[in-house]
Design a binder for these strands. Structure first.
Length: 675
RNA sequence: GGCACUGUAGCUCAGCGGUUAGAGCGGAGGCUUCAUAAGCCUUAGGUCGGCGGUUCGAUUCCACCCAGUGCUACCA
């Protein structure tokens, strides 16, 4: 009984081009889908462009055209890029569709009816220049959790923390460069806390890799789940909320619903009923996503589906990020490589194979080391697999009329089918590749021993030659069947070479006999290092001209916006705080603390105080000893796990590397009060 | 500090309660010349992070420790 699989990859955002990082996911998913189709399951690969949000609206405004024009242009670009890599969606839709609007309405009505929607005022960042509230992705600043700079307003790609844009430090509008200000507006929220028990069970029920299930259980699900802000006030490009006019659904509401809407559109084209896939039809729903959007797919999304009576995903497959040469992709180093740029220089099969050889079921980051990439592709694809055909296909015009005795080689390869299939099924493509390459090694050993080139010289051994070639070409074909999910192009060429289509996983079980052999053509070229270099060069963006030296300082309002002024206090209030000049007489690291330094401060004479200060991320102890600082002398002592802290040292900055300890001008003496 | 994951040959990684721990790549030596300078053979003497425990027997299970990574805590 074939399984019915509804498979999705995350919807790429309409505003950007596809790059090699995206492709990890689309290739991974494509391989998984192709595998299932090959084994005879009914698999549907659904994707779409994620179109809504402020970003699209602003871009349309800037370029003086409609959102729809942008969507059409980018949809074409995305699909061309995907097609270039052999990624074969069954349907590629758009979240800006009527089917999506209707479905969002339906799910919203269900959330309302279930009493999960609450409304309250939200203070949000507002761009006074652009005249609109700022979407998460349109605010950049410093991550409040880890201090990484240049992060978007919804999550940190450094530490994967999620937060709200108002939590961002040093926020700046990427639209206008203006410092955002705070404004209030009414928002709709979906309550998630009622789902916690359900989510706890669901995420632990095999829908996620155990590592990820644990991670979610230990992070998000330990505390009360915060209400989810699902609306944005106009102007906003998206679907208006039917019962809250002037408000629009936040893009993360309608984006995942787009999985279903895109299925609906596919069904409409094919005379199918979408409910067979999403509502009690017995289909398995599989989502492939990156670990950065785990939150949305394993908490919000199941809650929405459950409320609306739609099937829950059978499995959420989560992968890690792509690094290139061991580092985050970098525009200046030329490792931020667009799909199109890659296609301009290199064969997409290389990348499909390399990713496959590295992907496992775990959400580990995948490193594209370019030297390893070239070595692996050349060794495996060219040296082992393609070479097998290349070295035997030219000797004989056709395969032997019956498959000869090969000492059990083909049978041993056929017996690997289940193990390789299990590896594909589990998402452990690395293991599948290893097993396949092991078979390729055995096949090459066979050729070596049979030495068809020697047999060719002796006309009396023509039959033996034919047998040797029949075996090696069948072994080659067997490999191509196993590799077909990864390398559909190679499988097609192998089909052509031997005049027999590779159409099913079972084709690896039956050797061919008697087939005519087509004239041999090169199957896979070696990786040309010059082209690799050219690709890097084409991707490298010269780093922006070094900022004009010693330019006048620009005091933007980011810091103030990130932390608005406190309410007025009286002079008497201020006087309560006794600030003193102090000298750091000793600074030392505290065992087991990542952020804390232990400071011994002198107030003059024999007066000393011990302070534990959270400045270790920005200062080394030796930088501090001897210098003067400003010290809150009358702060109530605080017992910390490291010891008693008798006050605090005054500092500014958002944290992490950006901490600036205050010091008085020269001449001040320890013990003097700051007035 | 807590939670999780990882720690196996120069590199990338398999493996796993049981004979002398494996593969690929790289390196070294040899063979071959059919093939896209591909292939085959030999070789790497690695405390399987450390220390204990369970066991007839552990790289494989358990405890603890160390290191790396991620999240999290300490910032009065």
């Amino acid at each position: 009984m074939p399984r019915r699989l509804l498979v999705t990859a995350a919807l790429p955002y309409v505003n950007g081009h596809i790059h090699l990082g995206h492709l990890v996911e689309y290739i991974q998913t494509d391989i998984w889908v192709r595998f299932h189709k090959l084994v005879g399951n009914q698999a549907v690969y659904i994707c779409a462009d994620d179109t809504h949000g402020t970003a699209t609206m602003i871009r349309a405004r800037q370029e003086g055209r409609s959102e729809q024009a942008i969507i059409a242009e980018m949809a074409a670009a995305h699909q061309a890029d995907f097609a270039g890599f052999g990624i074969a969606f069954d349907h590629y839709g758009s979240t800006d569709s009527e089917s999506n609007r209707q479905l969002v309405h339906r799910i919203w009505a269900a959330l309302r009816a279930a009493g999960h929607v609450v409304e309250r005022d939200v203070t949000q960042l507002y761009d006074p220049k652009a005249g609109c509230f700022l979407a998460d992705r349109f605010v950049k600043g410093t991550c409040p959790k880890c201090g990484a700079a240049d992060q978007y307003g919804d999550s940190c790609d450094k530490c994967a923390a999620t937060f709200s844009p108002t939590e961002l430090k040093n926020a700046v509008s990427t639209l206008s460069g203006a410092t955002p200000e705070l404004r209030s507006a009414k928002h709709c929220f979906v309550r998630l806390e009622p789902f916690r028990a359900f989510l706890k069970e669901w995420t632990a029920s095999g829908t996620l890799h155990p590592d990820m299930a644990r991670w979610i259980a230990n992070t998000f699900l330990v505390d009360e789940l915060r209400d989810w802000d699902v609306s944005r006030p106009a102007p906003y490009f998206g679907f208006e909320i039917p019962d809250a006019p002037g408000n629009y659904f936040y893009v993360w509401v309608d984006a995942p619903v787009g999985y279903i809407a895109s299925t609906i559109d596919w069904c409409a084209k094919n005379g199918d009923d979408w409910k067979r896939w999403w509502e009690g039809g017995g289909a398995e729903i599989h989502h492939f996503i990156g670990k950065d959007i785990t939150y949305f797919h394993t908490l919000f999304w199941p809650a929405m589906l459950r409320t609306a009576g739609i099937d829950l995903p059978a499995k959420v497959h989560i992968h890690g990020f792509l690094t290139v040469n061991g580092e985050k992709m970098s525009k200046s180093k030329g490792t931020f490589i667009r799909a199109r740029t890659y296609l301009d220089h290199l064969d997409p099969q290389y990348l499909r194979y390399f990713y496959a050889s590295k992907l496992t079921a775990r959400a580990e980051d995948l490193d594209l080391n370019l030297d390893e990439f070239a070595a692996k592709v050349n060794s495996d694809l060219v040296g082992k697999v393609a070479n097998l055909a290349s070295r035997t296909a030219k000797f004989v015009p056709r395969l032997a009329a019956s498959y000869p005795d090969d000492g059990g080689l083909f049978a041993r390869g056929a017996a690997e089918a289940d193990a390789i299939a299990a590896a594909y099924e589990a998402g452990d493509f690395a293991e599948a590749s290893r097993r396949i390459m092991a078979l390729a090694d055995r096949a090459n050993e066979f050729v070596e021993q049979a030495a068809p080139w020697a047999l060719k010289k002796d006309p009396a051994k023509a039959a033996e030659l034919e047998r040797a070639c029949t075996v090696s070409l069948n072994l080659f074909r067997q490999l191509c069947v196993y590799l077909a999910p990864v390398l559909p192009g190679l499988a097609a060429e192998a089909s052509h070479l031997l005049g027999a289509p590779i159409a099913a996983w079972g084709d690896a079980q039956r050797p061919l006999a008697g087939n005519a052999i087509a004239p041999f053509q090169h199957l896979v070229a070696r990786v040309d290092p010059a082209k690799l270099q050219a690709m890097i060069a084409a991707s490298a963006v010269e780093s922006p001209a070094a900022a004009p030296a010693a330019a006048a300082p620009v005091d933007d309002g980011a810091a103030l916006a990130a932390e608005p002024l406190a309410p007025v206090c009286t002079f008497e209030d201020f006087q309560k705080v006794d600030l003193r000049v102090a000298r750091v007489v000793a600074a030392e690291e505290v065992p087991k603390a990542k952020k804390i330094l232990k400071l011994t401060l002198s107030l003059g004479g024999d007066q000393q105080r011990t302070v534990f200060a959270g400045i270790k991320t920005a200062y080394k102890p030796e930088q501090l000893t001897g210098r003067l600082v400003v010290f809150v002398a009358n702060l109530a002592p605080r017992q910390m796990s490291f010891g008693l802290s008798e006050g605090m040292v005054v500092a500014a900055g958002p944290g992490d590397a950006e901490i600036f300890v205050l010091s008085p001008d020269a001449g001040a003496k320890p013990g003097q009060r700051v007035h």
